[in-house]
Design a protein around this nucleic acid. Sequence first.
DNA 1: GTACTACTTGTACTATCGTCCAAACATGTC
DNA 2: GACATGTTTGGACGATAGTACAAGTAGTAC
Lengths: 192, 192
Amino acid sequence: MGDDSSIDGRKARGRKRRAEIIEATLAVIQRDGAAGVTHRTVAKEAGIPVSLSTYYFATLDDLLVAALTSIVEAYSTRIRHIIDHADDKVRGLAELIAESAGPGRDRALAERELSTLAARRPALRPIARRWREGVAELARHCTDSPEAVTALVAASDGLCAAILIDNAPSDIDYVHAVLRHALGLSAETAQG
Amino acid sequence: MGDDSSIDGRKARGRKRRAEIIEATLAVIQRDGAAGVTHRTVAKEAGIPVSLSTYYFATLDDLLVAALTSIVEAYSTRIRHIIDHADDKVRGLAELIAESAGPGRDRALAERELSTLAARRPALRPIARRWREGVAELARHCTDSPEAVTALVAASDGLCAAILIDNAPSDIDYVHAVLRHALGLSAETAQG
DNA sequence: GTACTACTTGTACTATCGTCCAAACATGTC
DNA sequence: GACATGTTTGGACGATAGTACAAGTAGTAC
């Protein structure tokens, strides 16, 4: 991950620049929303001239795709970690969702904005789909019912929205209980 | 609803213009998305000069608030109708959601875009909240559990998103089954 | 050194944006 | 008729957008 300049210094610098620009794009999205992403705002955030931003990302879609990919991959990594290591996977998901009210708000908001944007920009669609796929895979470890899987994925999305937009309750126990309902498990059936 | 010109022709004309502009705004949103709403695009859609649009809606927020209000109120009316008249209220909601795949796609998409926008523009927030409130009230007719109510509202939102963005299955029976899971009712418990 | 490629920069073009404003028009009151 | 109020119009302002392009710099191969 460090100095690959021994291979090809030019291309290595290019990759680094690319990463910098993506990071700047994420910062802009978190501050001003997906609508605030322009070549100029990104370039300003990264401290580079505008034409350098367009050199690496010819169109705005390219930039948004890269940003959404970055967000979703970070999310998928965490989901994967829950699937592999968490005892109570639903609770792990609940913790992830509950973060949307606090430190993870910017990220969750950015994800929702980009995901909403995906409905109009086909380029974003396959990446937006990946988040759902990750949660769905987690859900399949918790139930055999396809409907329950869909319900959990949908409820996760909707809960994030409610927390982000309506300041819905976000304490973990409550989110956990809601997700269990979505799975078709009543609260009384205990946990397991 | 017809000719009130006997009362005050000027104000009546103003109200009509306002309605026309809101309708044009909805058309723009359905065609180009919420991001496509500008004073100019709306004015062009309505066939009026730009300054007439700004005369009735000084800021873009005013325009978006009016548009979102219009959408949510139409939705709320249908939810209310389900609550008051439907035998199986969950199925009624399922039918409403399933429409997002077909004729209701534009409206559902517009609602999601504006609702997402609400996370950044406080002016839109109370109106965005109303949709959730409507579904929540319907849910309270189906269950006593607060968590189940939240789960149904969240699942409804998330299902719409999945249908809009990922072309998720949208046949009514399936949506119905998913919503029942969200309510914490297993499929085997029969319906009622 | 030269040649080549990748990277970087400044600048300019056209288009559109939100917003404002003064003047004209329509309508209702007197 | 005069007058007030609400409506409508065209045009302008500065700011910012996506995009393109020629020129310059740095790294690599010969």
